[in-house]
Computed example of a mutant assay.
Amino acid sequence: MKSSVPPGDFSLWSIAVPAFGPSLLFGIGEGAILPIIPLSARDMGSSLAGAALVVALIGIGSLASNIPASLLTARFGERRGMVGAALLSIVALLLCVSATSLWLFAVGVLLIGAASAVFNLARQSYLTEAVPPLMRARAMSTLGGVGRIGLFAGPFIGALAIHLVGLAGAYWVAVVAVAAAGTLAWWLPDLVSDRYEKIAGPAPTLGSLVAAHRRLLLTVGVGILLVSAVRSARQVVVPLWADNLGLSPAATSLIYGLSGAIDMLVFYPAGKVMDKKGRIWVAIPSMTLMGVALLLMPLTTGAVALLMVALLIGFGNGIGSGLIMTLGADYAPRQGRAQFLGLWRFMSDLGGTSGPAILAGLTAALTLSFGIAATGVLGLAAAAVLGYFVPRNKPIQR
């Protein structure tokens, strides 16, 4: 894919604040509300199962909105897409704050997921075009990394607001963060291609894109689905296994937090390796480490052993930061970029939704340890699929 700026004249610092700032702020907003959504649902009379379902609506809203998000981004552009997503998210958050019934609250949560889909797709599409291909992986890894930093910091900022004004405080933190994200996104530099280039020929349809990239979606796309399944399941296995071992909530939170801290520290070096060596130099180690760590987890019998495994999971996940977005950008055609990325994100979110469901099903049918081990096998399978189908050399720079 042709970039708007010659590689020799481009620096990530030139777009750092307007390009990565919105992701950090949007992540803070999401992080502030994620821990308290089930608590809000319970306050409105929901059962435990109902509260879990309300939380799942964020993922469902994102999954269902990826394709519409791609069409909106293609029509109105990436910058307007991010600003529109921020406005929709603010409306959804205000609906959550003012909801007087569980149903209204659930609608607000669903809309938050939909807004997230539009925002994430638009920011990925923007960087795909704005950053030269030789720096693409570093840009995508940084994008994923700053989002994770936001998700990590959000709960602490939200906790302070909750202490001051109650549960509603977390939603107001999110409103302010998302409003700031939308404001920064509005000041993104225009894409040169948006202003001067015209692509000849009719715009591709989703059906034509699926047909043209069928083999890719059934090979590398399946690998991406597996990666997302393992990543989403990993967020559940640590607290579940800690509870199984009888660890205290404080110890569980500490282990989970340290794993997340390792996750955040290694995103940029991983992006540089992907740019210099090729994508599989990160894809295979990332998924192999996570797969092995998940296979080892059922063998742990105490807090120290679980911490070591959790740190390995965090490291494996951290070095894979931006991997899915980078591969999507590599394969996205110049014509129909946003629609293709919408398909790519749909497969990713489908895996993200299925990961915890697979873990839950196997745990219910067999045991928790079997479910965790099976998730580890999925990680090794992801490494094998990506290792076989992703080129071993540097990607073709389009």
Rank of each mutant, 00 (worst) to 15 (best):
I313P: 01
Q124L: 06
L368A: 05
V222E: 00
L245D: 15
P68L: 04
S253W: 10
L226M: 06
L167F: 14
L188N: 11
L307N: 07
F105G: 06
M325C: 00
S40V: 13
L104K: 08
L127Y: 08
I15K: 04
P204V: 12
M82P: 02
W13D: 12
G371S: 08
A310K: 04
S141L: 06
F152G: 02
S125A: 10
A177F: 12
Q397A: 04
E30M: 11
L72T: 08
V107H: 03
S46V: 09
A261T: 15
V107T: 09
L225I: 07
R42L: 09
L95H: 14
P285W: 07
M287F: 08
P133F: 10
I67C: 10
A139P: 04
L254P: 03
Y196M: 01
L209A: 04
L72P: 01
L110G: 00
N393D: 08
G21I: 15
A86D: 11
I396C: 00
G278S: 04
S98W: 15
L93H: 08
G61L: 05
L258F: 13
W281T: 07
T363N: 10
A357Y: 14
A383F: 07
G150S: 10
G314K: 04
R214M: 05
R345K: 03
V227Y: 09
T73N: 10
G376I: 05
A16W: 15
G318N: 05
L88Y: 13
L104D: 11
